[in-house]
Write a protein that binds this DNA or RNA. Structure first.
Length: 650
RNA sequence: GCCGACAUAGCUCAGUCGGUAGAGCAACGGUUUCGUAAACCGUAGGUCCCCGGUUCAAGUCCGGGUGUCGGCUCCA
């Protein structure tokens, strides 16, 4: 069997026969073409990733990746992480290496070193790393035994590597692969590009702390973030895009558009300006109306509760760290902290639920609340509007019978989809199952997970499975949306909960005249108004659609003599519930137009002799150039138009 | 909470080697009454985040605190 032939199928369906042992690189060169051979970085034989230098050992479907593919880019970014690590160890002896994967936008490498890396260090590392690329070191792969691997890393004093190596072998690996370039060697699953020269350019971005293996009890490592591209031009384009994205940052736009502010006296709590409040209220009212149309009861409950409630709900035990406690000087308790601001609405709703005897005929009973919540978040996690200590959710708790779960979840996913699509947001759904730390019997979890999953499957929505990511009381479906710099934020959520009704001993009288336990669904669509508004600001880059815009139209006059008609226009539009303002500045028209444009007001209404004469306005749409000028319109016609655009789209 | 960086006028930002702070915009006053992205002249505005230290002298150097930012852990 010296010339055993393998059957290698290509993506176009054609297949080639080559002797076993032919390397991937040779296969590509002889069977496909020299051009692809030069461009090739690595390949996949079925699902197995192979370096070009690896011999083909079995038949299968071969896919070759070049610099034209996402996979190719991910590969050189991983290569780049190796190059950076090698340079860091040369420039900063004594630094220990850990891991360095590629990410969405680049890569990182985690190092253990006492002294922090400074921005100057980064610049040095970056320069030296790019120098390595020019040397075009080949990546050399080698398989070693457990003993060889451990011996190598013992010698190098790489404690973290040893830990990983031990783990790999403990999981049953027979050998371990090492990759070297130049005189630097690292343990790595691979694959890698043929040589360092295939990485076009490396750019280091920043340093940050990260815990070893993501556990805060472990030593803190220094994570160097960077990115790599095939071409300097691609890097420049990416940097420019990043720059553009930063212009949409909700913190920047929030200040520029005068929507909200923060003050050191209340870290993590928002000051909403009038404009911001108008936006907030537009969202709030839209949600409120939608809930009312869909069988929800809107309720308001107290913001502060005696700890009797928190002990009952389990928050006192599990969540106390995150709650703002309120001292009661009259209290007989030692710590006087007998009250707390509510961090969630659920316990309040349960109290309301149990205030009356409930019948199965009332179910599903849906409580909707937009009350203010407080959570004492760790200082380091606060971030603009996306992570705050005081916030409002478009929260709801739905009490229902188990048989109603599928329908209710289907209704919910439909609502969520409708709302997100009305904003043009693209989202991903995640199905999160039981976490290691949980309450409730496994049998309940089985039912809950099955129920939620069945309902989700029924809706046909694409979703990602997140095992172990559920809430401590039940599995959930989360809906994520990205911000302008690509960070994903959880907005909507649907959480199924059998445990809490049990804990609160909630009941309803069934058709059989017996007491039954309801199931609970926690759900939010916006998530929190604060975070949702952050996402919207970035999504629209501050150019809100009319129905959301804090100011929907700004009236500007050509000269002071037009002021009287301007006021009349203002009155008429305001009477229709539209948000309109007059620019009183003693400026030329051009300047007022510019101000209105910078304020991103959807319509600027120009009023001069012509408009006074014709009892109308000349609207100008937000935007550039001649087409922005809509010409003359009667006041009636424009007010119709604006009112129709101000309608809630869901 | 942890690691790192940053904090100067309402905003955006200069401020060299340690020698008591400056611009543009905004605000205010005046002139201008103007047709689709910036009229002109003037005035005022500062606990250089806070507390302490070094120094003849601190916006600048050092220590502590607060806040913000980038991550990590956590989370809507």
């Amino acid at each position: 069997m010296s010339a055993e032939l393998l059957q290698i199928t290509l993506p176009d369906g054609s297949s080639k026969q080559v002797p076993r042992g032919t390397t991937v690189g040779d296969f590509v060169k002889t069977q496909i073409g020299a051009g692809l051979a030069r461009a090739a970085l690595y390949a996949k034989l079925d699902e197995e990733e192979l370096d070009l230098s690896r011999p083909l050992q079995r038949s299968g479907k071969l896919t070759v990746f070049t610099n034209k593919s996402r996979e190719g880019l991910d590969l050189i970014r991983h290569d780049a992480a190796h190059v950076v690590a090698s340079v860091v160890q040369r420039l900063f002896p004594g630094t220990q290496v850990t891991i360095g994967p590629h990410t969405e936008e680049g890569f990182y490498y985690d190092f253990f070193r006492k002294e922090p890396f400074t921005p100057e260090d980064l610049a040095r590392i970056e320069a030296a790393a790019n120098e390595e690329l020019r040397k075009d070191h080949p990546f050399v792969r080698k398989e070693v035994s457990r003993e060889e691997a451990l011996q190598l890393f013992e010698k190098l004093g790489e404690k973290f590597k040893i830990e990983i190596v031990e783990d790999i072998f403990a999981k049953g690996a027979k050998t371990l692969t090492l990759y070297s370039h130049g005189d630097w060697t690292d343990f790595c699953l691979g694959p890698h590009a043929p040589s360092t020269g295939r990485i076009g350019v490396i750019k280091l971005l920043n340093v940050a702390g990260a815990y070893w293996r993501g556990d805060h009890r472990n030593p803190q490592l220094q994570r160097i973030y960077g990115t790599a591209f095939f071409d300097k031009k691609d890097l420049d384009a990416w940097l420019k895009q990043q720059e553009e994205a930063r212009k949409r940052d909700h913190r920047k736009l929030g200040k520029e558009l005068d929507l909200f502010a923060f003050h050191p006296a209340a870290p993590g709590a928002v000051f909403w300006t009038h404009r911001g409040t108008m936006l907030f209220n537009a969202l709030s009212n839209a949600m409120r109306q939608m809930c009312l149309r869909n069988g929800y009861q809107e309720v308001k409950t107290p913001l502060m509760y005696n700890k009797l409630l928190w002990e009952r709900s389990g928050h006192w035990g599990k969540y106390k760290e995150n709650m703002f406690l309120v001292l009661d000087p009259e209290s007989k308790e030692d710590d006087k902290a007998t009250f707390s601001l509510k961090p969630m609405n659920c316990p309040s709703h349960h109290l309301m639920y149990e205030m009356k005897k409930r019948s199965y005929r009332e179910l599903p009973l849906r409580y909707h609340t937009q009350d203010v919540l407080h959570r004492n978040e760790a200082t380091g996690v606060l971030s603009g509007l996306t992570r705050v200590r005081q916030f409002q959710q478009d929260d709801a708790h739905i009490y229902l019978m188990e048989s109603q779960i599928a329908d209710e979840v289907a209704r919910l996913t439909t609502l969520i989809k409708r709302v997100y699509e009305a904003f043009g947001l693209t989202f991903t759904a995640k199905f999160a199952t039981r976490p290691p730390q949980r309450i409730g019997a496994d049998e309940l979890w089985d039912r809950a997970e099955r129920g939620l999953r069945d309902a989700l499957e029924k809706t046909g929505l694409q979703y990602e499975l997140k095992p172990g990511d559920g809430a401590f009381y039940g599995p959930k479906i989360d809906f994520d949306v990205s911000d302008s710099i690509g960070r994903k934020w959880q907005l909507g959520t649907i959480q199924l909960d059998y445990a809490v009704p049990e804990r609160f001993e909630l009941g309803y009288i069934g058709e059989d005249n017996k007491e039954h336990r309801p199931v609970l669904i926690h759900r939010a669509i916006y998530g929190s108004f604060e975070r949702f508004i952050a996402i919207l600001i970035e999504h629209f880059a501050g150019n809100f659609p009319v129905w959301l815009a804090p100011v929907q139209a700004r009236i500007i006059t050509v000269a002071d003599r037009h002021f009287e008609w301007a006021q009349k226009v203002h009155e008429v539009l305001q009477a229709r519930g539209l948000r309109v303002e007059i620019d009183h500045a003693s400026e030329k028209l051009g300047a007022k137009i510019r101000d209105a444009q910078l304020a991103k007001v959807p319509y600027t209404l120009v009023i001069g002799d012509k408009e006074v004469e014709g009892k109308g306005v000349s609207p100008r749409k937000h935007g550039e150039g001649k087409e922005a000028d809509l010409g003359f319109s009667t006041l009636d016609a424009f007010s119709e138009k604006l009112a129709s655009e101000a309608a809630v789209p869901f």
